[in-house]
Design a protein around this nucleic acid. Sequence first.
RNA 1: GGCAGGUUGCCCGAGUGGCCAAAGGGAGCUGACUGUAAAUCAGCCGCGCAAGCUACGGGAGUUCGAAUCUCUCACCUGCCA
Length: 435
Amino acid sequence: MTSPQPMTAPVPTGFDSVYDELVWRGLVQQTTGDEALKTALDGDPVTFYVGFDPTAPSLHIGNLVQLLTARRIQNAGHHPLGLVGGSTGLIGDPKMSGERVLNTPETVAAWVDKIRVQVERYLDFGGNHPARIVNNLDWTAPMSAIEFLRDVGKHFRMGRMLSRDTVATRLASDEGLSFTEFSYQILQGMDFLELFRRYDCRLQTGGSDQWGNLVSGTELIRKVTGTEVHAMATPLLTKADGTKFGKTESGTVWLDPSLTSAWTFFQFWMNADDRDVVRYLKVFSFRGRAELTALEEATQSRPHAREAQRALAADVTTLVHGAHATAGVIAASTALFGRGELSTVDEATLSAALGEAGVLTLAGELPSVVHLMQRTGLAASLGEARRTVAEGGANINNVRINDPDHVPTRDDLLHGQWLVLRRGKRSLAGVRVAG
RNA sequence: GGCAGGUUGCCCGAGUGGCCAAAGGGAGCUGACUGUAAAUCAGCCGCGCAAGCUACGGGAGUUCGAAUCUCUCACCUGCCA
């Protein structure tokens, strides 16, 4: 994260109504009332909130959907509240797959700090309708069990709570469901009520998996105050090939550069399927309707040029990692996936590129190609590296290596110290020979 | 607490004494075709150059030889208390 404030003034979206824009971008799965929500968003500034539980040391690109949706609503003139779940993170939202392991309060507190910083990056804290960060631990921690049960619990009906999809599934499962996790929906409902009281917050947004929790809040507010407030859920992003969005072979795509490098992050978007790329642009890019329509047309008429993928990768990487890192990654990609003119790449670009891909630093005798592949992590074992060589998938400086015992020489070093090691078409690593 | 069934490689799943590093499927990897795409086709897919080593829930046995048989421990499932 190079700057806490990557986004400049709102760009024209091509829409008069932010609600219409959200629908067009495919961000509206379900609301408490489409017409009522549209009217509210087209009117005076509304305070709304979106929450993130600290279940990991970083947010990931699934959470980014929520952050950018909030920013779009803010750009339309509304006040966002970014909530970090200091209390809900201690309890755990029930998952279909089974009971969560509780994290220690120290761990949760540490993650809260990291996630707060990430949330701050995507909202605007200046201007006429600044964002604000809140932590639900602030109002939950001081509350006594008696207050919780009398003032909040009394408004929740067991039938309703038990009918929740996740709850019903878990109760029917072998593992069952703890009272702790069962209570989660009450806590989240309470958050909305509290934010309504403190800030007149009237809208909560979240992923479609949060729908029950969102409604838990609107219902609580109606019962306690008689006021109708809104909730909006975004759909789960899908991939055309049916696999889960947001994962690579090596796992979740995180926003934290120490968990997912800018290079890996960029490649993730660059590799988007033609069938998915326009939908992703609508969700993750701030380009307006006219531009996105042009990119959609480009994908259809000139798919090989992959203009939409380039725009998507550049836009999202810039948002998350900053313009500087993105420029480096683009230079890197152009050089390393180019036509083998590696010698023409200047050392600074090469060094930055390989730095993103991963570098193994060596001194002394150069090892053979299979050892290099194994030590850079391109192959999990020497045997796998040998197989790759036998299959014709091993390259040094864009030259295919057919002998597993091939040892590069000093003459092969680019700029006197670099080797570009590639497995297959996409997996790259750098080797830097010191001394 | 009793009785019955189960625990196999990243996942699912076959295998009931040697021909088992373990069928088949999925995932993954590589090549061809391409566009750092999709689809398709082909090969690969425990570790090791190899000899060999490790592996079928943990441990102990029987046997020339065990994923397969015996004992035991742990966990899961179903039925009965």
